[in-house]
Design a protein around this nucleic acid. Structure first.
Lengths: 348, 348
DNA sequence: TTGAAAGCGCTAACAC
DNA sequence: GTGTTAGCGCTTTCAA
């Protein structure tokens, strides 16, 4: 009933705009697709713009995609969603994509060695013009698949041999900053909760830690390094080991991740250690939890969100051939000094 | 150079398959689009299937979209990405979408009162066939915008007046389970760290808590309720208030969220309370952190991932007109008993 | 500066 | 059961 009374406003297509503005659809396209070399008289241009606005025109992406063989969306492949680092990366990527008029298609997958299917489907059916790839695992199937991709790929959070395009974080420098700070506060027996061996970010932090020690002429003691991985539980277990080892006896801990630091703090508390009185602690990667911990944790900021943003922008530049290579090294952010480190230097 | 030597295998299109199989493109379409009432002889069908496989055919989504006015993707709008609940919802939604051959486009936005633009762009340019909407705020702009949507919308995590389709969690029942458990362990002075007033999930938990008390004939004491919101910091601050209030004196805390429980535990520790000796604690929403806490936290599982999954499946059914209404109430998951609650009943 | 015409890859109504 | 035909909405030569 109601439909009969209301004059159904025509769908806003180029054709309908052309009809209303009494011009050809192609002219409308010339104006609305913002082609730089338009050559349309400002009179007709204004008229078209006006009509388009009145009809609240939004281009039909499918039609445009079909015509120009581009989807105007990029995909992002993430191994886990419950890791705050990836959440921030996605956040940044979404911002970058939408700034450039692209949408972000998400493909989640467990980071196993054999998978890679979602990725395949994503690019084969022309759903995306390019791909942002993150992974925790150096040898993951996605990385292998990425090397054969027909669309541009930008790897986030690490450098991968054979894939030029990446936006990564200088984690070794972040580790150096964190370790140096502990040294400056008088610490000499500094433990390191480290990542897996096959993780480039973990290895980077380990080297940064070692370099900072060397620079301060503090001998490296392997007893002070425990592999924790990236989880709270891992941090807690590694710390237990550390405390149980009579050859360790650290006065400070450098944790490679916020989660790991949380686990470490729990283990310390459980074993009767008070932070920072009995043990100082610093971690890489700032986040809301850091300031909510008790005591608030001193951290080196990690620009995860920026990583996603820069990755998206770079990828789109690649797609649009504005550049042919993306290689961005992001420097660590600031050292956020809170209350988890005690100054134990004698000449204080 | 290399391109000249390699015979470029033709792009796998319907036309090329038709050429190779010596049939008409429309016949190929009939076979490959899996139309149920095909009426193609199994002989030609097999031939087509074979050729298609050899060419590794993947349909061009843009062309199909244009033709059938469908994008085969759904959008999801989330207010924050660093909240584990939303991460799990996305995870589930991605699984549901990909199971049905759809892709998931993500639109992140701060959950302010005035926004709603990303959403608008998403549906207006025909980028998505439907929308999954999550929000923390009862009065958010997205919800208002959703009511005017031309594509189906399914609201996740809450029921909203004026929007029929939703998949939500019976948080009041979860609250009841948690509170009842504390009561069964002999607790009578049970505090509740609650959500905001304008959040349906928060209100539900509050009612569940009250009902459980009533049922056990324990009088409700407003001094035992503190608004914590959903963050770690909020949980910590609310707990501080609780401890400072001489009229409260709880023996147990029911926290509406895992994050809030983490904050509470920090505040308790800071104030010299030991869990569960001096204070028991239960929270809604299980997650890896729960078992990593010290002591491991007793929780009522919340099916966030399932919410995303059911939402996606329901939305796609709506889109494909297999059903015309989605209204799913998810029951709380199991009570996971760990070590954060002490039995203080006398006749133990 | 603008219009006419073709076609991206696909599907569906209609013939036979 | 299979081919013919038209057209979704858009961009892009080519002509005028």
């Amino acid at each position: 009933m109601r439909q009969n009374k209301v004059k159904p406003s025509p769908r806003a297509t180029l054709k309908n705009i052309a009809l209303k503005a009494k011009v050809d659809p192609s002219t409308v396209s010339r104006v609305l697709s913002q082609n730089p070399n338009q050559r349309v008289s400002s009179k007709t241009k204004n008229k078209i713009l006006e009509v388009a606005k009145g009809l609240d025109y939004q281009p039909n992406i499918s039609a445009r995609s079909l015509r120009v063989s581009k989807t105007f969306s990029i995909g992002i492949v993430v191994p886990q969603l419950d890791n705050p680092v990836f959440a921030e990366i996605i956040k940044g990527a979404e911002r970058g994509a939408s700034e450039k008029g692209y949408s972000l298609v998400i493909s989640y997958l467990e980071d196993g060695p054999s998978k890679g299917e979602p990725y395949k489907k994503l690019i084969q059916s022309n759903r995306v013009d390019g791909l942002l790839v993150t992974t925790l695992n150096k040898n993951s199937a996605i990385l292998r698949a990425a090397k054969k991709s027909t669309v541009p790929v930008v790897v986030l959070n690490r450098k991968v041999p054979g894939l030029i395009n990446s936006v990564y974080f200088n984690s070794s420098q972040a580790a150096k900053i964190a370790t140096k700070y502990l040294i400056a506060q008088g610490h000499k027996r500094i433990a390191h909760l480290s990542g897996q061996v096959n993780s480039s970010s973990g290895v980077g932090r380990f080297y940064g830690y070692k370099e900072a020690l060397e620079h301060a002429m503090i001998p490296f003691n392997p007893n002070l390094v425990e592999v924790s991985g990236y989880s709270i539980l891992g941090g807690s277990q590694a710390t237990e080991k550390l405390l149980a080892n009579p050859k360790a006896k650290p006065t400070a801990i450098f944790a490679l991740t916020l989660n790991v630091a949380v686990g470490a703090m729990m283990a310390l508390q459980k074993n009767g250690f008070s932070v920072p009185k009995d043990m100082s602690i610093v971690a890489i990667h700032d986040g809301p939890i850091a300031s909510a911990l008790h005591p608030p944790l001193t951290t080196v900021q990690m620009p995860s969100q920026k990583m996603g943003y820069e990755g998206a922008i770079g990828l789109i530049n690649l797609i649009e051939k504005n550049q042919n290579k993306v290689l961005v090294e992001l420097l660590p952010g600031d050292l956020i000094i809170r209350e988890s480190v005690k100054n134990i230097s004698k000449n204080k």
